[in-house]
Nucleic acid binder design. Structure first.
Lengths: 113, 113
DNA sequence: AGAACAGTTCGAATATCATGGAACTGATTG
DNA sequence: CAATCAGTTCCATGATATTCGAACTGTTCT
C-alpha cells in the first residue's frame, strides 16, 4: 500500500495562457516539449540534453505546473506527455504554431538528434 | 536637416522565436499588442493602461527589439504597428493563436475597453 | 532488509526582468 | 528662442528565474 506522490498539474480550466507562454519561452523547455511531442511519451532521464538532474527536474516542474505536460508514474520512472488536447481546446493553433516556430531553435541547439 | 533617431528593430531574418515568445508572455505587453492590432496603429501615449511613461516605454522597447512591433515617427509622436506580415511568415499561426488565447487575459485586466 | 535507481525537494548563488522617478532628446508651437 | 510635448534613456530597487550540488522519497530488484 504505497502512497504515490505525483507533482501538481492544473486542471484544464485553470491553465493560464501567460503561464503556458512563459513555459514555452525557454530554450531548454522548448526542446523538452518538442522531444516529448515527437516521441509521444518520455521519461525525464531519457534526454540527450546535457544538464544536471535538478535542472531538468526544475524545467519539468515549470512545464507541469503551467499545464503543458502531464506526468504519470510507471514503475520507478515518471512518464511525461504533452497535454495536447487540453492546450488545443484552450488555445487553438498555439501548440502547432510553436512546434513549427520552435523546430529551428531546437535543431540549432541540438543539431543531430 | 534633422537626424531622425528611431529605436532598433531586427530585420525579418533576425527575429528570434524565443524572443517573440518571451515578449508575448507578459500581461502588459500582451495588452499593448492586442490594442495595437485592434486599432491598426497606435502611439505610446494613447493607452488607457495605468503605468508610468518609463514603464510603458520599456515594454515597447522589448516588443520592438523582439520584432513584434515596428515604430515610425510622425511629428512628435511615435506610431506603432504589429509586424504581422513578418511574424505570419516566420511563425505561421502563432500571432492568431496568441490573439485568441490572449483576449480573455487582457479583458480580465481591463474589463471595458 | 538493503542496494540501486528515477526523480524530487532544498538551499544558495547568480542572472534576468519589471517598475518607476528624474533627467534628457528631438519635434512642434507660440 | 522659449515652452511644451512625446517618448526615451539612465539608474536604482525589488521581484522573479535559472542553475546546480546535496540530501531526500518512493520504487524495484536481489
Amino acid at each position: 500500500m504505497s502512497k504515490i506522490v505525483l507533482p501538481t498539474e492544473p486542471e484544464c480550466a485553470n491553465i493560464s495562457f501567460l503561464a503556458v507562454m512563459h513555459a514555452l519561452s525557454d530554450p531548454l523547455r522548448l526542446s523538452i516539449v518538442l522531444s516529448v511531442l515527437c516521441e509521444g511519451e518520455k521519461t525525464c532521464g531519457s534526454f540527450v540534453i546535457q544538464a544536471p538532474k535538478s535542472t531538468l527536474s526544475h524545467h519539468f516542474r515549470v512545464l507541469r505546473e503551467s499545464g503543458v505536460l502531464s506526468t504519470r508514474r510507471q514503475g520507478k520512472e515518471l512518464i511525461n506527455t504533452v497535454r495536447k488536447n487540453d492546450l488545443d481546446f484552450l488555445f487553438p493553433g498555439l501548440l502547432d504554431a510553436v512546434i513549427n516556430g520552435a523546430r529551428p531553435v531546437v535543431t540549432s541547439l541540438y543539431p543531430h538528434p
